[in-house]
Computed example of a mutant assay.
Amino acid sequence: MIIVMRVGSPEEEIVRVSQEFKDWGLAPEKIVGKHKVVIGLVGDTAALDPLQIQEVSPWIETVLRVEKPFKRASLEYRHGEYSEVAVSTPEGFVTFGRNHPVVLVAGPCSVENEQMIVETAKRVKAAGAHFLRGGAYKPRTSPYAFQGHGESALGLLAAAREASGLGIITEVMDAADLEKIAEVADVIQVGARNMQNFSLLKKVGAQNKPVLLKRGMSATIDEWLMAAEYVLAAGNQNVILCERGIRTFDSQYTRNTLDLSVLAVLQTLTHLPVMIDPSHGTGRAEYVPTMAKAALAGGADSLMIEVHPNPAKALSDGPQSLTPERFERLVQELAVVGKAVGRWSQVAAALA
């Protein structure tokens, strides 16, 4: 349930109204929009009469029920306003959101050694990337596949951050590693295989670093948004959704089926920013540029592209990784699309 306050509502009245709802046993959450303040009511509101709530204050404009099972993630919860996730990086804040330029994230699947990760970071930064992606801990289908270097790789990511000025996005697999990952990462990723690891989602939601939540391989959109709800309900409001392809009946030509329809669907359902990962979505480097441009044209707020200096020798996901040279050309191609749809930053445009 949300309460929309009138334009110009005094702050002391908003505080008083919020306190009254707390006295009712509810959890009010203040959401400041461009023109109005909205108070989200979380708790057992099923039996509450909107007219009864309306009588709490003359400054209440309207009372609306949130019909979706995902309350905080719902677009209704923010009264139709899309949220922004501003991330602190060594070179300032970068903002993910519907009304901001597309954010480019690039880097290898796994952190292999210092020379590789630092070289890749410098190359993707020069091409126009804002964040470096790289796995220290890697969930793999086979127990015999490369699992990442673990804690030692976090130090290599820190070195790449220092050398390039890029923000860092890396995955957490175990809540026991969360604190040390948060010391290095600017955004903490929850991977597809952990999308419904609810105890992990609660722990990630209880810390203050922004969270990138990848869609599970067979997850419905409702399940994905309910997973985001776990993070939001735990207190972390800075959540970015990432579509990385889902499992369908055809795996002969692509690794997954990249569901670009989510860009249109999510725009009607949620206020959260949306990233597209065409690398995992297709699994083949030759398809990545086409799908990246399609995603940008379709309204993606961010793109995650796997880049490796020598894909043929990559320890993981080499077939879907672009070379730095191909990534540079892709950014130039993206610039054309991005400028056409009004989603390209001046800095990225200059680099492109």
Rank of each mutant, 00 (worst) to 15 (best):
S9I: 04
E67M: 06
E13V: 06
P28H: 09
I39T: 05
L51S: 14
G8V: 04
I39R: 03
K34R: 12
E55C: 10
I60Y: 11
Q52R: 13
G8L: 06
D23C: 11
S57L: 01
K30Y: 03
V15C: 01
I53P: 04
D23Q: 14
A47D: 14
E29W: 00
K36C: 00
K36D: 05
P58S: 14
E13N: 13
E12S: 15
V38Q: 03
S9Y: 03
I53N: 07
W24P: 10
I14S: 08
K68W: 05
V37G: 02
P69V: 02
R65C: 04
D44S: 14
E11C: 10
L26W: 05
D23H: 10
A47N: 13
D23M: 11
K34M: 15
H35C: 09
K71P: 04
E20L: 14
K22C: 02
V32F: 01
H35Y: 10
V56G: 13
E67G: 11
S9G: 05
V63S: 10
V63E: 02
E12D: 14
G33A: 06
K36M: 02
T62M: 11
G43A: 10
G8Y: 01
E13A: 15
S18I: 04
P28M: 02
T62E: 15
E67H: 07
K68V: 05
P69D: 01
P28F: 09
V66F: 03
V17R: 11
G33W: 02
P28A: 07
V56P: 14
T45H: 09
I39A: 05
P69I: 05
E55H: 11
I60G: 13
R16M: 06
G43L: 05
E20G: 15
K22R: 09
K30T: 10
V66E: 01
W24A: 13
I60P: 07
I39G: 00
A47V: 05
L64E: 01
K71R: 08
K22E: 00
V37C: 07
D49V: 07
Q54K: 15
E12N: 14
V15S: 09
D49Y: 09
A47I: 04
I14H: 09
G43S: 04
E20S: 13
K34A: 15
V38R: 07
V32M: 05
I39E: 00
D49S: 15
L64N: 00
A47Y: 08
G33K: 06
P50S: 14
P10A: 09
L51D: 05
